[in-house]
Simulated scan of single mutants.
Amino acid sequence: MSWANVLENYARHKRPERELPDGVWVASDERTLTIFDGYEKAKYHMLVMPRDPFRLSSGATVPSSHLTNLRALLKSPHALEVLQALRQAGEEVSDMIRDEMHKSEGWTWDVRMGFHAVESMRHVHLHVISSDMISPKLKNKKHWNSFHPTLGYFLHIGDVINDVEGGSLELDSTKSYEALLKCDLVSHYPPHRTFATIPKLKEHLEAEFEREGVGYCGLGWSKARRSRG
């Protein structure tokens, strides 16, 4: 089995909680599977994917070809139901992550949910990732830009669902998205400084995370949590 087909294979397991390799499974239900991302780009990084077969509320199943990637899913008449199931599972995972943040760090910070416009692996999957972007496995410009929250390569699930509901979502060309991965290294923290190298960017991310944590812990955890919505 090739690396590119791993997620597709995982999604087809009938009992993933028993059949997946150790340290991979997080949660699953009849329609979705959540796993740890093996190449996490933040302190908390998980993937939520539709099970295959994915059973619709009508009792029918979504063809596997509709689940190959986000572009294929968005062409499917079943896109909205699949996306809504992924968002629901993603929200449950986000709550799990925030609980763990509180236990481990004493405070909570943002968790993002979205898709890469062009996936590197077969089978559509939703990234649920903490906003710190601190990880030894974040190593190059492509890694950073593919998760930048405003660059356009990371497509927030709420925006995707809104566009599908409005009938207006059209993905740009693969080439145009891949060009975004070559953009400058711009921080997502105001005032959005640009960095020449990944090591310099990562130093900045560590410093901002520490400053933010000290600030919120100084407010008191419960007050800090309310202030972040």
Rank of each mutant, 00 (worst) to 15 (best):
M46V: 01
H116M: 11
H127G: 12
S58D: 04
I157C: 04
A72I: 01
E92I: 05
W144D: 08
S76A: 10
R98S: 11
H45Q: 09
S76T: 08
A72T: 07
V62S: 03
A117M: 07
I129T: 08
H78T: 00
S173N: 06
P77R: 12
D110V: 11
L47N: 10
K75S: 15
V160R: 05
L138I: 01
E91M: 12
N145R: 02
N140A: 10
R122A: 06
V124C: 06
W144L: 08
P50R: 12
T61P: 01
Q88D: 15
D172F: 05
E165S: 13
S76F: 02
I129M: 06
M121N: 09
G106N: 11
D132S: 12
S94Q: 13
L47Q: 09
K142N: 07
W107K: 01
V48A: 09
I157S: 04
L86C: 02
H127W: 04
V111A: 09
A79N: 08
F147E: 03
R51P: 07
D132A: 09
T68C: 09
P53C: 06
H148C: 08
N140K: 04
T150H: 14
N145T: 06
M96G: 13
I97A: 10
P136D: 11
T108G: 05
T108F: 01
V118S: 08
G90S: 10
R98V: 05
W144Y: 15
S104P: 00
F54L: 07
M46C: 14
A117W: 00
D52C: 15
W109R: 11
H66N: 13
I161D: 02
R51N: 03
M121D: 00
M113C: 12
L83D: 09
L86N: 06
N145D: 01
G152V: 00
L67M: 07
F154V: 02
K137Q: 14
A85N: 02
D110H: 13
V93C: 08
S176A: 12
L155A: 11
K139Q: 14
L74H: 05
D159Y: 02
D172I: 00
E91K: 12
T174H: 09
R71L: 04
G114C: 10
S176V: 05
R87S: 10
R55Q: 11
P63L: 04
V118Q: 07
G166L: 09
Q88R: 15
H143L: 03
S176H: 13
A117K: 09
S76P: 10
S176P: 00
P53W: 06
D163T: 04
M121I: 01
M133H: 14
E119Y: 04
L151T: 03
Y153W: 01
F54I: 03
K103C: 11
S120V: 12
Y153F: 15
H45M: 11
A60Y: 02
P149A: 12
G90P: 09
D52Y: 00
S146F: 00
D99H: 12
K139R: 15
H127M: 11
M96Y: 06
R98H: 13
S135N: 10
N162T: 12
N140D: 15
E91F: 00
K103T: 14
M113A: 15
D99M: 13
L151P: 00
L169Y: 14
M133A: 13
I134F: 01
H148G: 08
R98A: 06
N145V: 03
T150Y: 06
G167D: 10
N140T: 02
S76L: 02
S64K: 06
T61D: 04
W107D: 11
R87C: 05
P77S: 14
D99W: 06
L86S: 06
S76G: 05
E92L: 13
